[in-house]
């Protein structure tokens, strides 16, 4: 039960994109088509789940015993970078189409603040349990994927709409994201962890 609560809290109540404002770059950048946003979401989910497990182990068994907690930023970034490299090589071999569609945004998962944000929040909130940390990360990644896919659906419709020229591009995306964020405010207070 506790795991379900952590999952829903990370995915809906504290949605990373719409409530915590993390991972906005890929949210705006790769959400032009639904299948690429789904692919991006899955890639981020894979990186986040594995990274949160590894960082938990590294933090608890290496950094804390040797009193090196201040190195956690560097350690976490390097772990993420290695994992992204692995995912990149896997996609390049097994799914070249998706690899090309994601383009520059694939290596940029390293600098996706949603990933590092989840790892840092894990230290603050769930440093006591590996399983809870991973569930939190998967929930967060699911919320990220959900926001991306919903947004790409809206963008699809928007391409047929007469948008004032001055609003084209980032501004109208911000308006849509703002409205979605209001909708997600409806989840707040549902669960408090």
């Amino acid at each position: 039960m506790e795991f379900i609560l952590i999952f829903i809290s990370a995915a809906l109540v504290n949605n990373f994109v719409l409530s915590r404002s993390l991972g906005i770059c890929p949210f705006i950048g790769v959400s032009k088509r639904m299948d690429t946003s789904l692919g991006m979401g899955l890639a981020v989910t894979a990186v986040m789940a594995v990274a949160s497990a590894i960082t938990h182990v590294v933090y608890t068994f290496v950094l804390v015993p040797f009193e090196l907690e201040f190195l956690h930023i560097i350690a976490f970034v390097l772990i993420t970078a290695c994992l992204v490299q692995v995912v990149e090589m896997y996609l390049k071999k097994n799914s070249p189409a998706l690899y090309r569609a994601l383009g520059i945004f694939l290596p940029l998962i390293t600098t996706n603040c949603a990933v590092l944000g989840a790892l840092l929040l894990n230290i603050d909130l769930f440093s006591d349990s590996l399983l809870r940390a991973v569930v939190h990360a998967v929930g967060a990644a699911t919320g990220f994927t959900l926001a991306l896919v919903l947004f790409s659906g809206i963008r699809d419709r928007m391409s047929y709409a007469p948008i004032p020229k001055i609003f084209e591009g980032v501004p109208i995306a911000m308006m849509v994201a703002g409205l979605m964020s209001i909708a997600f405010l409806g989840f707040s207070g549902m669960i408090s962890l």
Binding site: L18, S19, R20, S21, I166, F167, V170, P171, I172, A173, M174, M175, A177, G178, L179, S181, I182, L185
Partner: peptide
């Protein structure tokens, strides 16, 4: 001062 406000203000300022 909630998250939606950030999106709206940024979008409008760019406009």
């Amino acid at each position: 001062i909630l998250p939606p406000g950030g999106f709206f203000v940024l979008g409008l300022l760019i406009v």
